[in-house]
Design a protein around this nucleic acid. Sequence first.
DNA 1: CTAGGTGCTAGACCTCGGTCTAGGTCAACG
DNA 2: CGTTGACCTAGACCGAGGTCTAGCACCTAG
Lengths: 147, 147
Amino acid sequence: MADGGLSIGRVAQRTGLSVHTLRLYERAGLVAGEVRRDKSGRRVYSAWDVEWLANCVKFRASGMPLTTISRLAQLVREGSGNEAERLTLLRAHQRYITEQLTQLHDCLELINAKVASYEQHLAAGASGDPWQQQPRHAPTEHPRQLR
Amino acid sequence: MADGGLSIGRVAQRTGLSVHTLRLYERAGLVAGEVRRDKSGRRVYSAWDVEWLANCVKFRASGMPLTTISRLAQLVREGSGNEAERLTLLRAHQRYITEQLTQLHDCLELINAKVASYEQHLAAGASGDPWQQQPRHAPTEHPRQLR
DNA sequence: CTAGGTGCTAGACCTCGGTCTAGGTCAACG
DNA sequence: CGTTGACCTAGACCGAGGTCTAGCACCTAG
């Protein structure tokens, strides 16, 4: 019982995706095991499907585009024999994530610095404006000097 | 000299943004110090503008929406007195970034595991398919059991 | 029997963040 | 002088990823 399958609504609840999105994902080929239907045409998701979808959610959250997930799903659907390509995709995303991590750290550092500066600024009673351009020395008219 | 201002093209080069995007950002109010123009109407970016834009790039890369950056720019443009709100924005993004970091780590963990499993799989000569649904026991017709 | 809840499809619609085009100005170079 | 190249504005266009609607089919409960 329990595990004969879940309706789309249930799956939406436990993946955090909307039913609309679930249908979209299916149309887009993101779902690796094609979803069964009950006798009146309603989707019946297996536990495995749900697990897969949970992974999809993580992939999306980490910036993997639908097309890539779709490709991956296709490979899995086709079964053994293409493990090398799957690995390639995964490694690429691995790299992508680590790049993102460094960028995020980068930005976080910037923000931390700004936050610290503002906190201090506010604590010490406002004086100068951190993060402000210096008073424009002159609305200077500049001789064009490009190149 | 050197530092009287840069043309949009130069700025594009050193921020990595396209000139189109730079103009877009300006229209959208992302640029904190309004950009001067030379006598024939061309944008002249100050070093400070460029620095600000570089920060914008980081903000964008870390997922801050244009509207938020725009708001922040506005606050900075308005000058001292609104530091508290700036701080709020920054703190919110700080939180957002750390959430992203955990999500990324989460996904990275998943991927690492999969990668490891595939590497092992490939090294050991293909046998079973990691990441495959178990052979469907039966194309079962399930009694609807929702709710 | 009817109403309510959930699901179905097809397709329209929306936001976001860019990107590109048309048509024009300007300055420098040969 | 004409050409070239960078720039200008206004506005169209685009792809990604959702989200929502209309119109219909079920099923179950009252």
